[in-house]
């Protein structure tokens, strides 16, 4: 997957979790949990969605790398997605 594809995949999953959010206003370096008001169940669903879309394992210890959209793209690219 290209970085753009990864980015689009992540945004699609987030749109399913937070359908009311304004993704146009979401910056690459924004804290996802804070800006989108994700609770731990939302975040687990986000991780689950990324796992199913890319096959990446994403252990809990790596969750902190997924705090921003840029972080998600970089992490999954590095993980071989």
């Amino acid at each position: 997957m290209t970085k753009d594809e990864i980015r689009k995949t992540a945004l699609d999953i987030l749109a399913g979790i937070a359908p009311e959010a304004d993704f146009a206003a979401l910056g690459d370096e924004d804290e996802l949990r804070e800006v989108l008001d994700l609770d731990s169940m939302d975040f687990l669903n986000f991780v689950t969605g990324l796992h199913e879309a890319t096959g990446a394992e994403i252990p809990e210890a790596d969750y902190r790398d997924l705090s921003t959209l840029q972080g998600v793209v970089d992490y999954l690219k590095a993980a071989g997605a």
Binding site: S40, P59, E60
Partner: peptide, 12 residues
């Protein structure tokens, strides 16, 4: 949770 896929992980 370690070693489990996200679908099988639990929350606190």
């Amino acid at each position: 949770n370690e070693g489990r896929p996200p679908t099988e992980r639990m929350l606190a």
